[in-house]
Simulated scan of single mutants.
Amino acid sequence: MDTPDNKPPTFWQMLHSVMAAAFGVQSGKNRTRDFTHGKPSHFVVLGIVFTAVFALTLFAIVKLVLLMAGV
């Protein structure tokens, strides 16, 4: 049976790690957990999805602001 220290990170832990890394505030403890127990492919896919959602959100906000400004 796996101990809590040997379990791979959950989806929410990986999402938190990707968001923290994107903004440059990842803790050493979480980074160590991710590199020790996480699969790189999961972080790459989640990072790409996060980046796409973030970019599309910014694009939508800019379009909304320009629409409301009458440009």
Rank of each mutant, 00 (worst) to 15 (best):
I61E: 00
R31K: 14
T36S: 10
K63F: 10
T36G: 00
A69V: 05
T57C: 02
F54K: 08
K7I: 06
F50Y: 15
H16Y: 05
L66K: 08
T57R: 00
S17N: 13
S27D: 15
G28I: 07
V71K: 15
V18K: 02
M14F: 00
M14R: 15
F35G: 01
L58E: 14
F11V: 09
V65S: 10
M14S: 02
F35P: 00
V53Q: 10
V53N: 08
L66E: 04
V71F: 15
A55C: 10
V45P: 00
G70R: 07
K63R: 13
A21P: 01
T3V: 06
T36N: 03
F23S: 05
R31A: 14
P9E: 10
M68Q: 10
L15I: 00
T3S: 14
V25T: 13
L66N: 12
T10V: 09
L56S: 06
P8G: 02
P9T: 06
M68S: 08
G28W: 10
A22D: 13
H42C: 02
W12D: 14
V49L: 15
F35W: 04
H42P: 01
N30F: 13
T10K: 04
L67V: 08
G28C: 02
A21S: 14
D2V: 11
P4K: 05
S41T: 12
G47T: 11
M19P: 00
A22Y: 15
A21W: 07
L67Q: 12
W12G: 01
V65P: 01
K29G: 01
H37N: 15
T57Q: 05
V49Q: 06
R31C: 03
V65G: 01
P9S: 02
Q13N: 01
T32W: 12
Q26E: 15
V44C: 02
L58N: 04
V62Q: 07
A22H: 13
K7P: 01
K63D: 14
F54T: 09
M19R: 15
H42Y: 04
L58K: 08
R33V: 12
F35Y: 10
A52N: 00
P4H: 06
I48T: 04
G24T: 09
G38L: 03
V18P: 11
F35D: 06
V49D: 01
V65E: 06
I61Y: 05
V44L: 12
F11I: 05
F35E: 13
L64D: 07
N30Y: 05
G70Q: 07
M14E: 13
N30K: 03
W12F: 11
L56N: 08
F59N: 11
F43A: 11
A69F: 14
M1K: 08
F50H: 14
L46A: 11
V25I: 10
I61W: 07
I48P: 00
F43C: 02
F50C: 07
P4G: 03
K7F: 03
L15E: 09
W12V: 08
T36P: 01
G24E: 05
S41P: 01
P40F: 05
R33C: 04
W12N: 08
K63T: 04
P40W: 06
I61T: 04
G28T: 09
G38M: 08
V44M: 04
